[in-house]
């Protein structure tokens, strides 16, 4: 993981989450992981292509996802949700989009160019993600609604 990439992702993740949820975000220790990883239950994935290749995954439990989406909806004066419906999924997708978008903008300012794929959202139990040949940087965050993990696996084109 190229060191220049790390900060933009970490900064925009904290920034965006703090802003949209209006809550304190507790930072966890960053670490690297290369084996396959369990997914907590709801995962939004954004692909990256260009100078680098890889993907960013936003991972949280279903419960957390519902609460996060509700909080975001409330802040826009909309009805909160009590199950992960279309509105809830769209909201989580948007959160992922905002974070990745902001990170990529920061990286663009540093001279790295890449494109984003539209976010996709996965829900389900017993899911795992593995990226053969890429090490993932895990950015753990604790928010009042639960645990959110941002899992960045990108690499230089060789």
């Amino acid at each position: 993981m190229r060191v220049e990439y790390i900060n933009p992702f970490v900064e925009s993740a904290y920034g965006v989450i703090q802003e949209v949820l209006g809550a304190e975000v507790e930072r966890g220790e960053l670490y690297l992981k290369s084996t396959s990883m369990p997914v907590l239950g709801v995962a939004a994935i954004v692909g990256l292509a260009g100078d680098v290749e890889g993907r960013v995954l936003f991972d949280m439990s279903k419960e957390t996802a519902i609460q996060v989406a509700s909080q975001m909806l409330r802040s826009m004066g909309m009805e909160p949700i009590d199950e992960l419906n279309d509105m809830g999924r769209a909201t989580i997708t948007e959160l992922a989009n905002m974070i990745t978008g902001q990170a990529v903008t920061k990286l663009h300012d540093l001279g790295f160019k890449f494109d984003l794929s539209p976010p996709a959202i996965f829900t389900g139990d017993n899911m795992e993600v593995s990226d053969p040949g890429v090490e993932a940087l895990i950015v753990p965050m604790q928010i009042p609604q639960g645990k959110v993990e941002i899992n960045v696996a990108i690499r230089e084109r060789t």
Binding site: M1, R2, V3, L32, E135, L137, E156
Partner: peptide, 14 residues
């Protein structure tokens, strides 16, 4: 190219 990387993981270099 400086990378934050654990060499005991998979090394994706040419």
């Amino acid at each position: 190219l400086f990378e934050y990387h654990d060499i005991t993981s998979t090394n994706a270099i040419p």
